[in-house]
């Protein structure tokens, strides 16, 4: 499991991702899945993927520090991950629902929407793909489903129906 050395994200981006998961998955109390574990799953997954969309993911994470924070928190510079949770939430809320000047520039608004979607994607797949996140949502693993236990789970083989002696 996590050794805290990200494979896909840079250390700063990874720290940002953990903070994003902590902010987006608002459990109303203690996080039941460690955000660092969820982030580790996401990083591990993305490190195995080739997709032009990866650039959008990096941009969305990077843009929070370099664009959205200064723009949305009155020229506040620094790292999103270092903000108190309430301030992080304000930033993300303003990305989701742009207001004022931020909402007037259509391109910025569209970019913000893409960024918000990306943040939700990362947080949700990280949290709800983990065994604990799945269990907490009420999902019952296959092995634990009562009706599954007596079933013969051996793989089936499918013979060529048109082979000699088959259907022809």
């Amino acid at each position: 499991m996590p050794d805290n050395t990200p494979k896909f994200f840079s250390p700063n981006e990874y720290e940002g991702l953990i903070a994003i998961i902590e902010t987006m998955i608002d459990t109303g109390g203690a996080m039941e899945v460690n955000p660092a574990d969820a982030a580790w799953h996401v990083d591990e997954y993305l490190s195995r993927v080739e997709s032009p969309a990866l650039e959008q993911i990096r941009l969305a994470i990077g843009a929070i520090d370099s664009w959205y924070m200064p723009l949305l928190l009155a020229f506040r510079f620094g790292r999103f991950s270092k903000l108190p949770v309430a301030d992080r939430r304000r930033v993300v809320e303003r990305i989701i629902y742009p207001k004022g000047m931020f909402s007037i520039i259509a391109a910025v608004r569209a970019g913000a929407r893409d960024a918000a979607r990306t943040l939700k994607l990362l947080a949700s797949i990280g949290y709800y793909s983990s065994p604990e996140g799945m269990r907490l949502s009420g999902y019952v693993p296959v092995e634990a489903r009562e009706r599954f236990i007596p079933l013969d789970q051996a793989p089936l083989t499918h013979a060529d129906p048109f082979a000699e002696g088959g259907l022809t």
């Binding site: 987006m24 608002d26 459990t27 939430r89 939700k120 949700s124 797949i125 709800y128 996140g133």
Partner: peptide
């Protein structure tokens, strides 16, 4: 399963949770 399902459920933050 839950991870893909979570992406189709609208809402943010605690509402989504």
């Amino acid at each position: 399963p839950p991870a893909v399902f979570s992406l189709s459920i609208s809402g943010w933050f605690n509402e989504h949770f």
